[in-house]
Nucleic acid binder design. Structure first.
Length: 272
DNA sequence: AAGTAGTCCTGAGTGC
DNA sequence: TGCACTCAGGACTACT
């Protein structure tokens, strides 16, 4: 499941489509998460200028002032193939073929993701991007900012940190890991954290996301990068998916609970 | 207003 | 072997 480090890894890998010219676009008739307003004709002849990322959205800017917004949902893959005459496989929903014969393929079995086209200057007003909070690596995301945001939040800290209006790109996997490193229980009310705990949490979120990017993301179930390679960070998980196993810090066991319909993994003894 | 539950989807895993 | 069922979760919508 792609989270921010995986998307960032894909973004870096996609730099080799810059300056390529689209010769043909394919879209399947399957419904993705949001109805796309994609005008296929408008993409033909477009040249890729830049690949950006905002939260978990990949933004592909073209020379004609349009941008593709791509979200990979739970199971989406965005893979670049250099071979000519790429043959579609099951769940390929969107394909850009370039004039040198290479292809960019969006494949998504569960169809939680989407592809949309928007005028680049209006990109921040897109319904999916308009309300997003700061990037975790943005200097605006610091202890003072988070303290203010959490003050009135009575819900648990784990769910709160996955709210995109507070900070973007912190999904289930990395918030579990960040809370473990910060020795904070996922059950704590968000407004019960003191400033030291908040500062530690901010630092650990930044650090764990950066480490994951450096290692090419995590491969759980579906994720591969733009070249189809697996990531490595899953080997570094301290609590995620380790229920019943021994805590790596103390002699306790890792617990699994469900919060707001999502799995949380934590050590009762280490995380208070 | 804030918090919570339901929703979309398919493939992998489990039990009979 | 095959069927039925459950689970995974990002982010929206619709309730309370």
């Amino acid at each position: 499941m792609p989270e921010l480090p995986e998307i960032e890894t894909i973004r870096i890998g996609l730099n080799n489509i810059i300056n390529k010219k689209i010769s043909q676009v394919f879209r399947s008739d399957k419904k993705l998460r949001i109805a796309s307003t994609l005008d296929l004709k408008g993409l033909n002849g477009s040249i890729v200028k830049k690949i950006n990322r905002r939260a978990r959205y990949l933004l592909i800017n073209f020379d004609n002032k349009n941008s593709l917004i791509v979200h990979l949902g739970m199971s989406g893959r965005l893979v670049y193939k250099t071979q000519n005459n790429y043959e579609k496989i099951k769940h390929d929903h969107f394909i850009c073929e370039f004039d040198d014969g290479s292809s960019l393929i969006y494949n998504d079995p569960r169809r939680f993701g989407f592809v949309d086209l928007i005028t680049t200057k209006n990109i921040e007003t897109h319904s999916m991007l308009a309300k997003l909070g700061p990037e975790p690596f943005d200097e605006k995301f610091d202890a003072q900012y988070l303290l203010e945001k959490l003050q009135k939040k009575t819900t648990n800290i784990k769910t709160t940190m996955m709210d995109n209006e507070i900070v973007v790109g912190v999904g289930n996997t990395y918030i579990n890991e960040s809370l473990f490193l910060s020795k904070i229980s996922p059950l704590r009310a968000a407004n019960s954290l003191n400033k030291n705990e908040i500062a530690m949490l901010v630092e650990n979120i930044k650090q764990i996301l950066q480490t994951a990017i450096n290692q090419g993301g995590s491969s759980i179930n579906d994720y591969v990068d733009a070249k189809g390679n697996l990531g490595n960070f899953q080997n570094n998980f301290r609590v995620y998916g380790r229920q019943g196993k021994e805590c790596l810090v103390c002699e306790g066991d890792v617990d699994r609970i469900v919060q707001n319909g999502r799995s949380s993994f934590y050590c009762r003894k280490c995380q208070k």
